[in-house]
Simulated scan of single mutants.
Amino acid sequence: MNKALLIIDYTNDFVANNGTLTCGKPGQAIDHAITHLAEEFLTNQDYIVFPTDLHVKNDPFHPETKLFPPHNLAHTWGRELYGDVGSWFSAHKNSNHVYFYDKNRYSAFVNTNLENFLRTHFVEELYLAGVCTDICVLHTAIDAYNKNFDITIPKNAVASFNQIGHEWALNHFKNSLGATIIEN
């Protein structure tokens, strides 16, 4: 059974101190853990997938326009991958086991070919990392569950700007989606 690590929305806008929708220090604190996981997955010839938010400024047709300021806009610093994760991606982006793609909804499955990619590569187990635990990671996990993927959440590789939402999502992953939560 193949595995894939989904590194969700780990961009400057969501993690850096001056990012538009930053989760700040909690997001920055998981940089090393995500990089370590990516290296482990690559060493094992598993897949590392970067579903990354992409928006158009003031898009009148996108529901997030009403909820959040413009973020993760194409060709901006804010959309670049953050920190060591960004450096890791730059060094390995040409690998056949590393896949970067745009998403425009909370879930990495909606309006994308993620499921097709995973099925054609015989991936059955997903590890979810990135931000925000209670938004994009949560919605991706729910879709993964509904599509019958096994889900693992490394607790030290997810973060949110809302600690209560973060803890709630971790409990939801375990108790409602049957996910395995790895403590370290």
Rank of each mutant, 00 (worst) to 15 (best):
A179Y: 15
A129Y: 09
W77P: 08
L67R: 13
G27E: 11
I151T: 10
G83W: 06
N44S: 06
F100C: 03
L81R: 10
N175E: 07
T43P: 09
D31P: 10
N96E: 15
L54P: 01
G78R: 07
C132V: 04
N184Y: 00
T20L: 07
T11I: 04
G130K: 14
S90Y: 12
Y10A: 05
A157D: 12
R105V: 01
S87D: 10
P154I: 01
A179C: 13
A33W: 08
C23N: 14
N156Q: 11
A16E: 11
H121R: 14
K147T: 02
W88G: 02
P154A: 00
V110H: 15
H121L: 05
F68C: 02
D59S: 02
N111H: 05
D143F: 05
T152K: 15
T140V: 02
N111G: 00
V49K: 04
M1H: 04
E39D: 14
F161H: 07
K174A: 01
V110T: 15
V15N: 13
L67I: 10
H75M: 05
S160L: 10
K155N: 03
V110D: 14
L37C: 04
I8F: 07
N113M: 03
N58E: 02
A108V: 13
K93I: 00
Y10F: 14
E125I: 03
N17M: 12
E167M: 00
G78H: 08
C136K: 10
E125F: 06
H97N: 10
A29I: 06
W168G: 00
Q45S: 09
N171M: 04
Y145V: 00
G78M: 07
P26S: 06
N72H: 06
D150N: 14
L81K: 11
Y101E: 12
N162K: 11
P70S: 04
G83Y: 07
V85G: 08
H97Q: 09
E64Q: 03
N113H: 12
P51K: 02
T35A: 02
I142M: 07
I8G: 05
L170E: 08
E80N: 13
K25A: 10
I182V: 01
H71Q: 09
N58K: 01
L67M: 13
L118F: 07
V98P: 14
H172G: 00
A108G: 15
D59P: 02
E40M: 09
E64P: 04
W77G: 03
K103G: 05
H172V: 01
A129V: 05
I153K: 04
V110A: 11
D102Q: 10
E39M: 07
N72D: 14
A141C: 06
